[in-house]
């Protein structure tokens, strides 16, 4: 088995004059969950599309399960399963029909396909709605059937493009449980998300991308450490956060930062000091020009 389920080197992609990926390098260890974090338009979906053989890169190489995504597309396809950003389900069919269709396409005979379908419906708690058309499903159920379909053939590498976007908290947590469970089975999971909490909860490693480049790469702890020791939060009269400023946690830096801020904000502004969250990392890494001085502090 390969040490790295996914390896990406110098990947570039442009659409017309727009540079979407501008030299991406990363590696995902087999059997781990990797989160690609970034704002809308950062190139997350394009990267997933390249890794899942849907789009060819302009430059650079990528391998999935040891196979090249351009030269060995068919071999890669046998190793992966994709759950796209928009539910990849046939809405006019029932959950059962969807699962059965994918099972047949994956090479199961009709008896095996029925058994596999029944098993997945049960595992994803969809047995009661199995004969209803997916069109009538709620967002959470739709995501569940989508994920269930991705697991029909049990591929070793699973791509999830924003798996919980648009879900309520409860459905999101239920889906997280399922994803963590898949990791226990040894499946390598590559997911994209805009939610820091999601990356924090699920991922063994996180890469932050912005403007087509990886701006940070590491464990959640490592990324938080990059922002510094303590974060100052300025709180206004209406209890809203006016501004967050990272410091290195030393008495000097906190005092210097505070005296600078004292000149800019009303005297009744309150201050709280807390540990950095992944949010702070994200803001520090993905915002451009204007806030560069903040991350440089």
């Amino acid at each position: 088995m390969n040490k790295h389920a996914i390896e990406v080197k110098g990947l570039r992609k442009r659409f017309g004059s727009q540079i979407v990926l501008d030299g991406i390098d990363l590696a995902v260890e087999t059997g781990t969950i990797f989160a690609l974090l970034g704002p809308n338009g950062a190139g997350k979906t394009t990267l997933i599309n390249i890794l899942s053989t849907l789009v060819a890169p302009d430059e650079g190489t990528a391998t999935v399960a040891g196979r090249d995504v351009v030269k060995e597309r068919d071999e890669v396809k046998r190793a992966i399963s994709l759950t796209g950003q928009f539910a990849a389900v046939d809405e006019a069919l029932t959950a059962e029909e969807n699962l059965n269709m994918i099972a047949r396409l994956s090479g199961f005979n009709s008896r095996e396909a029925r058994a596999r379908t029944a098993g997945l419906l049960k595992r994803f708690d969809l047995t009661a709605s199995a004969k209803k058309r997916v069109k009538t499903y709620s967002g959470g159920m739709r995501r569940r059937i989508d994920l269930a379909i991705s697991l029909v053939a049990e591929r070793p590498v699973l791509f999830l493009d924003e798996p919980t976007t648009g879900l309520d908290t409860l459905s999101r947590r239920a889906l997280w449980e399922i994803i963590l469970d898949l990791k226990k089975q040894g499946i390598t999971i590559f997911l994209t998300t805009q939610y820091l909490e999601e990356a924090d909860q699920l991922a063994d490693r996180i890469a932050v991308i912005a403007g087509g480049r990886v701006v940070a790469n590491g464990t959640a702890g490592e990324l938080k450490a990059r922002v510094g020791g303590e974060v100052l939060e300025l709180i206004g009269g209406d209890d809203g956060v006016l501004r967050t400023v990272p410091t290195d946690g030393s008495i000097q830096d906190v005092r210097r930062t505070l005296s600078e801020l004292a000149l800019l904000y009303p005297q009744d502004t309150r201050v709280s000091i807390r540990k950095p969250s992944l949010d702070d990392v994200f803001v520090a890494l993905t915002t451009t020009a204007g806030s560069k001085e903040v991350s440089a502090r």
């Binding site: 053989t53 849907l54 396809k77 046998r78 399963s81 994709l82 796209g84 928009f86 389900v89």
Partner: peptide, 13 residues
Amino acid sequence: TNGIIDRFRTMPI
């Protein structure tokens, strides 16, 4: 224009 085509395309068929 649906997500389903991407699923079919990433299968070895």
